[in-house]
């Protein structure tokens, strides 16, 4: 059964897959592995979609990712907190774009040729996505490779101490050569909700965002 289901089509809804393939020179085999096949092989192994933001590599569970795509033209939403970048039209669906860079580092993400949108599956609530500086590979980690963030942050305080929205970070995965901050995507809606409720005095980013529409 799993073989006949082309799970990977979700990940190449991207209008220009060839280009993406060129960008990622590493073998793509990991990307075609279905979460449930993974769970059949070894119960502990989970797949993460990785992406880069500033100096860090992040990962979200692949199970909650619907697709990764180029950023369509953005429509800013006035009055929304700075972390809400606006709406995009994703093939007839209106999707909310969250600026993770702003959420974590209080600095709006610059849109360039590497910027991608990670769109989440409906299980996270209304259609929602995050802007990432560039997309990385998919990796598989087992639970033993992940340390809870609280303890991890003491050890790596120089790197991780910058993060203000600590609740979003679920843990730290140890990869060869670098660390992977595991994002708890399920907390994203509630985190945003708190921010909106607080109505913290942030300069709304919509004024400049409109000039950065990215094709």
């Amino acid at each position: 059964m799993p073989l006949t289901r082309r799970h990977n089509r979700y990940f190449f809804a991207d209008p220009n897959p060839e280009q993406r393939l060129r960008e990622h020179k590493k073998p793509m085999t990991t990307m075609t592995i279905e979460p449930d096949t993974v769970s059949i092989r070894t119960a502990e192994l989970q797949s993460y979609t990785t992406f880069r933001l500033r100096a860090h590599w992040f990962g979200v569970p692949t199970a909650v990712v619907k697709e990764v795509t180029l950023v369509p033209p953005l429509t800013p939403v006035p009055h929304a907190p700075g972390a809400v970048r606006g709406y995009v039209n994703l093939r007839g669906h209106i999707v909310l774009v969250v600026d993770l860079n702003f959420l974590l580092y209080r600095c709006p993400e610059d849109l360039d040729a590497d910027t991608r949108l990670i769109v989440f599956k409906p299980q996270l609530g209304d259609a929602c996505s995050i802007l990432v500086q560039r997309i990385g590979d998919m990796v598989e980690l087992d639970a033993a490779q992940i340390e809870s963030y609280r303890t991890g942050s003491e050890a790596d305080s120089q790197d991780a101490g910058l993060l203000p929205e600590e609740e979003l970070i679920q843990g730290v995965g140890k990869l060869d050569g670098h660390l992977l901050l595991i994002l708890d995507a399920h907390r994203l809606p509630s985190c945003l909700e708190q921010i909106i409720a607080k109505r913290c005095q942030e300069p709304s980013s919509h004024g400049n965002a409109s000039k950065e529409n990215y094709q």
Binding site: V77, A80, P189, L192, I196
Partner: peptide, 20 residues
């Protein structure tokens, strides 16, 4: 979007003919 419901100045969103 559910999270933006507190923004009372907007009642919804739409996709225009040009896709915006």
């Amino acid at each position: 979007h559910g999270l933006l419901k507190p923004l009372t100045c907007f009642s919804g969103a739409t996709i225009l003919g040009d896709g915006q």
